[in-house]
Design a protein around this nucleic acid. Structure first.
Lengths: 209, 209
DNA sequence: CTCGCTACTGTACCGATGGTGTAGTGATGA
DNA sequence: TCATCACTACACCATCGGTACAGTAGCGAG
């Protein structure tokens, strides 16, 4: 065992814990995932866990950071691709949404973003840090989608009177809620269908059909 | 102490636990609410708790049942009132949504429905029973809103091609996600604004504006 | 070759929490 | 009078998050 970090195949214990924790939490929730279980799975001791993380909240923070980074990368690549395919801001946004719907359909069980709600609902157990991180991540979505929508509105004056920030928040709301409903109803396609419905709404707002 | 159930002012211990549990869980989550805390608040002993509930899951079940009943009553009254105010199915649905937006704005912190996600995200901790109850409750929403939408579509052929069940699910999705975002962003108005946005979409679908 | 650092191990312990079991009790209704 | 309901009282258990602290294998810098 011991340190095989530098030149060996095995990823560091910290990374192993993070990976294990992510899949476990998505399946069983944060409270349902014990530290003992993670250290056993990672082949380390409890002391080893607390060497890397001061407490369980710090694990949540690390997980959320990782998750938001991955989220951002996915959205970046999706909308970068959409921008390649068309020049018009509306078409690019609509294309991006279609690509996004395909991406989340692929993710199926393994939704990141589960983490946000999973951790949000523990609430009081967590410190300010976790809540603020969660908040920042969500506001990033508002900024991103709000930005796209302002580009769209500049070229295509809205036919329906809507607040662009609220329309941006709608996608976050649908994604968070969609993840809940996918779990509750066991209908994996629900989330991507809701994104496509949102897409219809956006088109109606700016193209009038 | 002892039994004051039959003729006294104090509600039964079971009811007191249920009430305490509801507010505590909404604030702190299910895992963050201890049985000891509830029995202390209700002025009974731990044995008393386990006399009424086999385990903590059974408390969750009782809470969810209560919650779904209340939900149903609220929606019944909201859409009954809307039906009083207009004859046209579209106008009645739009009015109902506006009333609903006002109701959830009033509820503020005290969102029922929090429970659904709060319990859903504990997941594995719970048995099949809890999950099925959760599922049934959500399908009730689909049936209700799907029903309204079919009435609407019968009189007002949709201008935009959408699946009515998906449009019905959209309100559930927005409510569940909205509750998450209200908590994360600490923006209590977000949920009712999302409901009003949904309302704009519905109007665009059926009235074309 | 030693020194200090990183990344752990091992052991022992703590309080809170969920849960079990069993015996007993006061009030109510048939 | 007797059973049932709605509990109490007390003892006990495993799990879990967390603390404390001493020790150690491997690595790079000097």
């Amino acid at each position: 065992m011991t340190t095989q970090t530098t030149h060996c195949s095995k990823p560091s214990a910290r990374t192993r814990i993070l990976k294990l924790a992510e899949t476990a939490i998505i399946q069983k929730g944060f409270a349902g995932t014990s530290i003992d279980e993670l250290v056993a799975g990672a082949g380390i001791t409890k002391s080893g866990f607390f060497y890397h993380f001061r407490d369980k909240s710090e694990l949540a923070i690390a997980l959320l950071e990782r998750h938001f980074e991955q989220d951002d990368e996915i959205l970046d690549s999706v909308f970068a691709r959409a921008r390649e395919l068309t020049d018009d801001p509306l078409q690019m946004y609509l294309t991006g949404l279609k690509l996004l719907a395909e991406v989340v359909a692929d993710l199926r069980e393994n939704h990141p973003g589960c983490l946000v709600a999973s951790i949000c609902y523990q609430d009081q157990l967590f410190n300010r840090e976790v809540r603020e991180l969660n908040q920042r991540g969500t506001l990033t979505w508002r900024t991103r989608f709000g930005g796209y929508l302002r580009e769209v509105a500049a070229k295509h004056p809205p036919k329906i009177d809507v607040d662009l920030d609220e329309l941006a928040d709608m996608i976050s709301t649908l994604v968070e809620g969609g993840i809940v409903l996918v779990k509750v109803l066991k209908e994996p396609k629900l989330l991507s269908r809701q994104i496509l419905l949102y897409r219809s709404f956006v088109r109606a707002v700016f193209a009038g059909v």
